[in-house]
Design a protein around this nucleic acid. Structure first.
Lengths: 220, 220
DNA sequence: TTTAATAGTGTAAAAAATACACACTATATT
DNA sequence: AATATAGTGTGTATTTTTTACACTATTAAA
């Protein structure tokens, strides 16, 4: 007898100064008409990571995904139809990379929508709990991981980066101290370009230098 | 159809200046005669945490256990008889609380033994990987959790505490700086007692003050 | 040219982390 | 009683990191 379980993805993106999570409106029981994390059963011979990629591709059209396992949720009563375990993943996409409007590709969901992290609807199953834990995790990993940069477009301003930090931490940061700290890491490469299309002083653009980040980790 | 999966426990204790892990020698296929993490199938209507308690009780006679979920391991090829998922937990017991010599209570294992973390035998399944991740996790949580104190007897000396830190981190710490740091946390209560039965100056005993720890966390 | 909106910058003070060495004490041994 | 042994317990100076804090510069639009 083999394992029979689902994957649920907390899919983050950042837009309009806020951290967002992608949710599905379910179109079947249980929890019909409720909002829920995108997820599905894992195929018999499918690696979990491939299932995550599959779900992400269906929802965002993207293939290279940042993902991190959050853990197993297997409460006996989490699913009305008997215990069905889910393994939750945190995933991150760049909002601007998500091509089309998201369309339901299955009959299981009615629609998909981005919700600001501080304005989530009521959620099916134990998904509220999963999101809470995922966010907690994201906070902790701010300092150790490249996650934060997955939320931004390839070229971004320091203000945008700070906004992402603030959105994840849920608190404001001092601009000068923040910039000093970021400068000290040395992970950013200053570009010879500035923001376009703004009606005020254009900000310089930066990009995350993955090579330098790797090196830094190596030394530690 | 319900989930069918196992729990595996990384059971830590600290003795003789070293971090130890409890392993079973398997007495059935697959991996007969190999060393493995204590674990078992989770019953149909059993919460995972209860399964962990059950396994810990069988192995150590203890009921109040520190535990933390490490995550799901579900590689399609991890189990020779088809994918069987395991959810791994890190657990900690105080070595001196483990009452009797550990006896196998099932036919599935031949013996159980504590291994120093740096002298593990070759391990069944993906258990080496699980232990590695668990240890990583333990390191990270040194600063955020009470885990470290679960490894020590109720009353302990500062030198013992330092040894635990060193065992987990795998590196030496400066005695004076360590004591300064610990003193700053304010989590320890100095007892009016000293060590007994040593042939040198007896060290003062301390105990972990859980109340103060909670308060500290509350403020942060 | 003025206004509105955001970009960009430095310094001083406080706190935390690090490096470092010797005297003390309880017991066991002679 | 003297001494050897083995681990306990302590302070200070230096460096690094974190925090607090406010004004000028630039651009586009009105």
């Amino acid at each position: 007898m083999q394992s029979h379980f689902t994957i649920d993805c907390v899919i983050y993106s950042f837009t309009e100064g806020k951290l967002h999570v992608l949710l599905n409106e379910r179109n079947e029981y249980p929890y019909k008409d409720w909002w829920a994390l995108p997820g599905f059963f894992v195929e018999k011979d499918e690696e979990m990571e491939d299932a995550v990629k599959r779900i992400l591709y269906e929802h965002t059209g993207l293939k290279d995904i940042f993902m991190e396992q959050l853990g197993a949720f297997a409460g006996v009563k989490r699913h009305p139809q008997g215990r069905i375990m889910t393994v939750a993943f945190s995933t991150i996409v760049k909002y601007n990379d998500v091509k089309s409007k998201i369309k339901p590709t299955t009959t299981y969901m009615r629609q998909a929508r981005w919700f600001p992290i501080d304005q989530l609807p009521e959620l099916a199953f134990d998904h509220a709990q999963i999101i809470q834990k995922s966010l907690q995790n994201l906070k902790y990993s701010l300092n150790y991981s490249t996650a934060i940069y997955e939320l931004l477009p390839e070229k971004f301003t320091l203000t945008q980066l700070q906004q992402v930090y603030e959105a994840v931490l849920g608190s404001a940061l001092d601009k000068r101290n923040f910039r000093k700290k970021i400068a000290n890491t040395g992970f950013l490469k200053e570009l010879p370009e500035v923001q376009k299309g703004v009606s005020y002083r254009a900000a310089r653009l930066y990009k995350f230098d993955r090579r330098k980040f790797q090196k830094q980790l190596g030394i530690d």
